[in-house]
Design a protein around this nucleic acid. Structure first.
Length: 491
RNA sequence: CGCGGGGUAGAGGAACGGUUACCUCGGGAGGCUCAUAAUCUCCAGGAGCGGGUUCAACUCCCGCCCCCGCAACCA
């Protein structure tokens, strides 16, 4: 047999990063409904980055979790006749299951209902902001729907009426705590403008920058207890509940135990990458930064903003009944096929469309016919006898492999997962052509034949390693694959 | 004139101021039989509309038409 896994494949990846830390987060899933494919997209992208940096030898901390407070959740729970705690426990557990189902490498999972890890730090943050004079009481005036028993926003209105209750809202005044975001408006504007925090893609940075130029206003940080019971009480004032910003965003530091002395916090903060959706960039790019500035903490190094998934060309929505369930899709195609689809089918920063038809086409074309078939071809060519001289891989093959490695790595760092994968697939195509051109199966000269098989094996091995961050399970499987075994059966 | 993104073969996606605009699926022809009806080669078919800048524009600029985000208390 030609040795299957020879040498360090990713030699072009530096292995000197042992002391570097890499802290990567996703947004928290809001637990008012089961997780959908959109969240799967975010965690899969983050997982590729995490695994890639792991591969580089860095000390990776990959965090995800669930945001479990809010009136919406309390309401959804009530609808199902459950108490909120039980309700969010169930959904949070489902989100956790995604870790197994999608084969995620996250190290930690934080819940905003965690009274031991999360609550104390939220309170601490609150008190610190207050101490700095950045939290104050102010009367808030806004449209309030008595049907919803909550303040509503413009978006909840159609023709000036509440969508759900067909009622005109009353204007109600309420006293809430506010965060002095306006104080940091200029500073934040400059941070974004000067790219102290790198925002990918550029277009989002522009969007955010323009938004901040209009000037940031102070933002309400609490709700009255009667409107929002399911949440963390404001310290020293239990007539008020902490609103989402000062609760959910804090997860990024509560998970690593924010106190200046905490070793874990010292080690990992600031985040290297916050992975978020385009809908919440504004909050991360303004409120969160304002909080950090007030706390005197260093700022995240970068924010990566991904697009949304549509299904059959339409926005996912419960009313349309087209919410794609990641569990079901994985059940049918397997974790790696779903990961592959989400990463390869579209650019990470654009919106992408999912459909069962599309994933099937990708699966058959790229995984069964492409990767799987190539692996089978190479394996079938392995010589029977074990006497193989130590040969060296041909220069031009070596060159092609090196080039692919370089592109694949570079594209990951640019968040261009689809292009990284397409570089890997062009190496597979190169291998396929090489087999056809050499007609290796016909060659009688054993030495020449073995040389070619060695080259092919080197290609397959490289593909295997390069695939690691994207398709971890498949990557392992290929190294253990035996003649005649099928990696991805055609569907 | 609120801000921003986009309109590329039948479908879905890239790239780029300069040979012949690329890839995948689909369609057509041929080859091979190591391989999962796989794989390889070749062919057909394309830049929203109108102007401008340039030796040269799909790429830059202007106008128009159409789509889509954002326009803070929404995860």
């Amino acid at each position: 047999m030609v040795p299957r896994n020879q040498g360090i494949i990713f030699v072009s990846y530096s292995m000197i990063n042992q002391n570097l830390k890499f802290y990567i987060t996703t947004s928290l899933v809001y637990t008012n409904a089961l997780p959908h494919l959109g969240f799967a997209l975010e965690v899969v992208q983050a997982d590729v980055l995490a695994r890639y940096h792991q591969f580089l030898g860095e000390d990776v901390y990959f965090l995800t979790g669930t945001d479990e407070h809010g009136a919406k959740i309390a309401k959804s729970a009530e609808k199902e006749g459950k108490n909120p705690k039980k309700f969010v426990d169930e959904i949070s557990e489902k989100v956790r299951e995604l870790k197994e189902v999608l084969n995620l490498s996250n190290k930690d999972f934080i819940r905003t209902t965690d009274q031991e890890r999360h609550w104390p730090i939220v309170k601490k943050v609150w008190l610190k902001l207050k101490e700095n004079g950045d939290i104050y009481k102010k009367k808030y005036e806004g449209p309030y729907c008595s049907g919803c028993e909550a303040f509503i926003t413009k978006k909840d209105l159609i023709n000036g009426k509440c969508i759900i209750h067909q009622k005109e809202p009353e204007i109600i005044k309420e006293e809430n705590y506010f965060f002095r975001l306006s104080k940091y408006s200029n500073q934040i504007g400059e941070i974004i403008e000067k790219e102290v925090i790198k925002i990918t893609p550029q277009s989002r940075k522009k969007e955010l920058s323009n938004f901040i130029k209009q000037g940031l206003e102070d933002i309400s940080f609490s709700r009255s207890r009667k409107d929002l019971q399911w949440g963390i009480p404001v310290p020293d004032d239990d007539t008020q509940t902490i609103y989402v910003w000062a609760d959910a965003l804090v997860n990024y530091i509560s998970a690593i135990g924010y106190t200046e002395e905490d070793e874990k916090f010292k080690r990992y903060w600031p985040a290297d990458i916050h992975c978020i959706g385009k809908d919440i960039l504004k909050f991360h790019g303004t409120i969160w930064l304002g909080m950090l500035l007030s706390l005197g903490l260093s700022l995240p190094k970068s924010i990566f903003v991904h697009g949304f998934i549509t299904v059959d060309g339409q926005k996912m929505s419960k009313s349309l009944g087209n919410v794609a369930d990641p569990f079901e899709i994985v059940k049918k195609y397997g974790a790696d096929a779903v990961r592959y689809f989400l990463l390869a089918e579209f650019s990470a920063v654009e919106d992408g469309d999912f459909s069962l038809e599309k994933i099937k086409v990708r699966y058959n074309a790229d995984l069964a016919n492409g990767l799987g078939n190539f692996a089978a071809r190479v394996l079938a060519l392995q010589p029977q006898s074990s006497e193989v001289k130590l040969l060296k891989i041909d220069k031009d093959i070596e060159r092609k492999i090196e080039e692919t490695k370089k592109i694949a790595a570079q594209k990951i760092e640019e968040f261009k997962f689809n292009e990284s994968l397409s570089a890997i697939w062009s190496l597979i195509a190169f291998g396929d052509k090489y087999i056809n051109q050499t007609q290796v199966w016909k060659i009688a000269d054993l030495e020449l034949k073995n040389q070619i098989i060695l080259n092919l094996t080197a290609i397959l091995n490289s593909v295997t390693v390069l695939l690691g961050p994207f398709m971890p399970e498949t990557s392992v499987k290929i190294t253990q694959l035996k003649k005649g075994e099928i990696l991805f059966p055609r569907l």
